[in-house]
Design a protein around this nucleic acid. Structure first.
Length: 818
RNA sequence: GCCGGGGUGGCGGAACUGGUAGACGCGCGGGACUUAAAAUCCUGUGGGCGCGAGCCCGUGCGGGUUCGACUCCCGCCCCCGGCACCA
């Protein structure tokens, strides 16, 4: 290798050793004055090599954190592993390698690889959720929620994945009802399971989104998922029975158009109200609908079906009888499990009425007659017709009035419904935190006393997927236990917790990972939370990001923290693809970071990922990109190397007042670069931040060509100042190279504490500038003017400039814009 | 269907609250250095017309507001993501 080249392979490991010896990235959480908690999402140790995705999300996140440290923040940047979970266990089923062994070895390999990235992670505070010292507190969390009534066990129809042999949370069922993990179509089963009562927080989870600095689409995902819907619950007295059917509707203004009620097949009242002569037919219908899968039942393509129950309800306003049907398009899990059928103004009700020949009564007329198709329901608002005293009113107004009337007569009240369901947290798998509950024949559910935590996972278990029983269910050593309350023989709960429980509170634990008498320090939590800046994938929008918000709020209400939200600011990285497709082993298009890192160095790899893409978007991998950025790093190195002589001792780097035009221009670029790069880094716009640095480099080459001998006998403070600035600007992006250059110009390590360069808005506002002269929106000429010229003077000069007088022909210039 | 995001050169991507569209980079053309190549340095590069000064056209499509629109308004088309028989 020629002497005139930067060699990352020698430099990078050397500086990493120095940083480690300096203990540079150990955060002093107790004494921080400007805390900046820079958090990246957990890594899954499901493989032992880093892939491009790891570099793409962690490298830039570290660059942001580095720039914050240079700005004087006390940055805390931890890293840890979400080590429990199905992949490790499935691997064990296939190969017989114990999840603990494969996970531990993957974690060790990943840490070794991660260290080569040169990030500021504080490895003294790493976490591994599968270690008893961690999951002890996951179990503590469970117990706290249990004590507060926020964790409960009940039988419910739940999603079951036949491949993974476990239940799943609603949030883990994606697309056409398939398992988020393995893609297998899931089934509904009635099982007794543990839930966290996230629905208690539905309203706050929704409301508080407005105050979060999150991407709009992520907030939208959560809003849709929570699915708040305001409406009215209406009571319908059933004729000849001591029963009341409650329906939920968002459109009480259509009440006079109700021609039937429909109950879900699982509705509890059904057996009470069904007429004896209809019982047989109803039973047959229920049996039929039970056989249908959830997918078939809820398919919009499916013909509407239903059966008359023989019962009638009394219309709350007209007192007319309304037939009650059972129909499987009505969901037992939403609202009250019963609906008021208004065929004229609801498309589903319309289809139902057409299929079963029920009357369709129009009660709202569109104001615009053009929007009144005859072959479907009219769902908009308009003028009320055939609705007793409300006739002639605007439907929006009737909506309010009819609510008041129903409330007045005790037949209905305003209510809110949510799509959100409680979080199903139990899993019939081994590799997770055991649920700290003991089932005693005498005492029932008994929480494990806190002092007995952790309930440790036994190492010695049988992993074969047998007869629907998990390894823990088959482990007598684990299951058999004495009841902590009465001392009788009892049985441990054999389920483990969803791994999303592990990751729902880890940001607290990072603050005091070694405390063994409490999950976190309230003092540190108050000082460091909410997380200053969080980053990770959008795929967790309604999973981890929702669960963590719930856990934080629950812990707040239980008095364990004082914050309302865990993550104030959030960014999502995009995805790096190759040849237009996601990288995967099966496609054979996986780019291995190792090859590129060993060829170009960690800095170049990081810098390419930051420059070649808009970080939030991602994009397609291109080999030329990394070659280009690597060449640019050499270019940076060369210019600094060439002028290092400027930094001989005692040399003053004040940029002074440049006299020549070239010097003025260079100074201007310097200030512009500092401003631009700083703002862009702060906003995670890495590509444009680097572009600003490139402009400074280009300006330096213009100013001081590298041909020939450098003329350093000439006093050149501006050049020195610019070079020093350049080195500081690049430090967050290419930490190793910048540290080397910093050292090369005679400074002490480390550059992360050398401060971020400042710019002077005055400089950007003074000097001469070229402006375009537009007439009627078209550029007609340009001229050089001082930046601080007044509008009047500007107009005046422009009107006399070049060919402008000819074009103006005596008319004045109306407005000037600089 | 509803909600959110997006559509800009050959390519990746810029453009703050409307003010020279295409920063920066790749690729490509030209030049310097070299016996030569690589590397490096300089230079040109949205499209069309023109010898030239210059002119015309250009941010998915069609209208509009404005002295001026990638940006704002109205009506569409297409792509990505989420939700969806949610009453």
């Amino acid at each position: 290798m020629s002497e005139n080249r930067y060699d990352p392979h020698e430099v990078e490991p050397r500086w990493r050793r120095v940083w480690e010896e300096m203990d540079l990235f150990r955060a002093d959480l107790e004494h921080a004055e400007r805390p900046c908690y820079a958090l990246v999402m957990f890594a899954y140790p499901s493989g032992d090599r880093l892939h491009v995705g790891h570099w793409y999300r962690y490298g830039p996140a570290d660059s942001w954190a580095r720039h914050m440290r240079m700005r004087g923040y006390d940055v805390f940047e931890p890293f840890g592993f979400d080590a429990f979970g199905l992949p490790a266990e499935n691997y064990a089923v296939r190969t017989g390698v114990h999840p603990k062994d494969s996970t531990d070895s993957n974690v060790a390999n990943m840490i070794a690889q991660l260290k080569a990235m040169g990030a500021m992670w504080d490895w003294a505070r790493t976490l591994n959720t599968s270690e008893p010292a961690y999951y002890r507190w996951t179990q503590w969390l469970f117990l706290k929620l249990y004590e507060a009534g926020l964790a409960y066990r009940r039988e419910a129809p739940v999603w079951w994945c036949p491949t993974d042999q476990t239940v799943l949370a609603n949030e883990q069922v994606v697309g056409d009802n398939v398992c988020e993990r393995c893609g297998t179509p899931v089934e509904k089963r009635d099982l007794t399971q543990w839930f966290f009562k996230i629905t208690d927080y539905a309203d706050e989870l929704l409301e508080a989104l407005d105050g979060l600095e999150w991407p709009e689409r992520t907030k939208t995902l959560q809003r849709n998922w929570i699915g708040r819907s305001e409406g009215v619950e209406i009571e319908w007295k059933v004729q000849k029975a001591d029963a009341v059917v409650r329906t939920f509707t968002t459109r009480p203004d259509t009440l006079y158009g109700v021609t039937f009620l429909a109950l879900a097949p699982e509705h509890a009242l059904l057996s009470t109200i069904v007429a004896p002569d209809r019982r047989e037919e109803v039973e047959a219908y229920l049996a039929r609908s039970r056989r249908l899968s959830e997918i078939e039942r809820t398919s919009t393509e499916k013909e509407k079906t239903g059966v008359f129950t023989g019962a009638h309800a009394v219309h709350p306003l007209t007192r007319e009888p309304v037939p009650i049907w059972v129909a499987d398009f009505v969901l037992g899990t939403y609202g009250t499990g019963a609906i008021q059928g208004v065929p004229a103004h609801d498309q589903r009700d319309w289809e139902f009425a057409r299929a079963l020949d029920l009357p369709i009564v129009k009660v709202i007329e569109s104001v615009d007659p053009a929007v009144a198709p005859a072959d479907q329901a009219y769902t908009g608002h308009g003028t009320v017709v055939d609705s007793g005293p409300y006739t002639g009113m605007r439907s929006e107004q009737m909506l309010h009035e009819v609510i008041a009337e129903l409330a007045h007569s005790g037949q209905g009240h305003k209510t809110v419904n949510y799509r959100l369901r409680d979080w199903l947290v139990s899993r019939q798998r081994y590799w997770g935190a055991p649920i700290p509950i003991i089932h005693c024949p005498q005492c029932g559910e008994v929480p494990v006393p806190e002092e007995d935590l952790p309930v440790e996972l036994p190492y010695d278990v049988d992993f074969s997927l047998g007869a629907g029983k998990s390894p823990l269910e088959r482990s007598a050593a684990f299951l058999e236990v004495d009841c902590p309350r009465c001392g009788q023989r009892a049985r441990r709960d054999a389920d483990t917790m969803d791994t999303f429980v592990d990751s729902s509170w880890y940001y607290f634990r990072y603050l005091s990972p070694h405390d063994d008498d409490r999950p976190w320090s309230p003092t540190l939590a108050d000082r460091w939370l909410p997380v200053f800046q969080y980053s990770g994938g959008i795929e967790h929008a309604v999973l981890h990001l929702l669960y963590s918000r719930f856990v934080t709020k629950a812990m707040r209400d239980l008095g364990h923290v004082s914050i309302d939200e865990p993550f104030q600011r959030l960014f999502h990285q995009g995805t790096i693809t190759n040849a237009g497709a996601k990288m995967s082993k099966s496609r054979g298009n996986v780019i291995s970071p190792d090859e590129y890192v060993s060829q170009y160095g960690a800095d170049a790899f990081r810098a390419y990922l930051m420059f070649g893409f808009s970080w939030a978007e991602g994009g397609d991998w291109k080999d030329e990109g990394i070659r280009a950025i690597s060449a640019w790093l050499q270019r940076v190195w060369r210019i600094v190397e060439r002028h290092r002589g400027l930094f001989a001792d005692g040399y003053a780097l004040r940029e002074g007042d440049p006299s020549t035009e070239a010097a003025q221009e260079l100074r201007l670029v310097r200030h512009r670069s500092v401003k631009g790069a700083g703002e862009d880094l702060a906003g995670w716009q890495f590509n444009t931040a680097i572009a600003r640095m490139m402009e400074l480099v280009n300006a330096l080459y213009q100013y001081a060509p590298v041909e020939g001998e450098p003329a350093h006998d000439v006093h050149e403070p501006l050049l020195g100042e610019c070079i020093e600035t350049l080195v500081r600007l690049t430090a967050p992006i290419v930490p190793h190279l910048a540290e080397e250059l910093w050292f090369m110009i005679g400074r002490e390590p480390s550059i992360v504490d050398a401060g971020w360069p400042e710019f002077d808005p005055q400089v950007l506002a003074t000097g001469e500038v070229t402006i375009a002269i537009q007439l009627n929106g078209k550029v007609r000429d340009e001229m050089r003017v001082p930046r601080d010229l007044s509008d009047e003077d500007l107009k005046d000069r422009a009107a006399r400039h070049g060919r402008i007088p000819d074009l103006l022909q005596g008319r004045p210039i109306r407005k000037a814009i600089v």
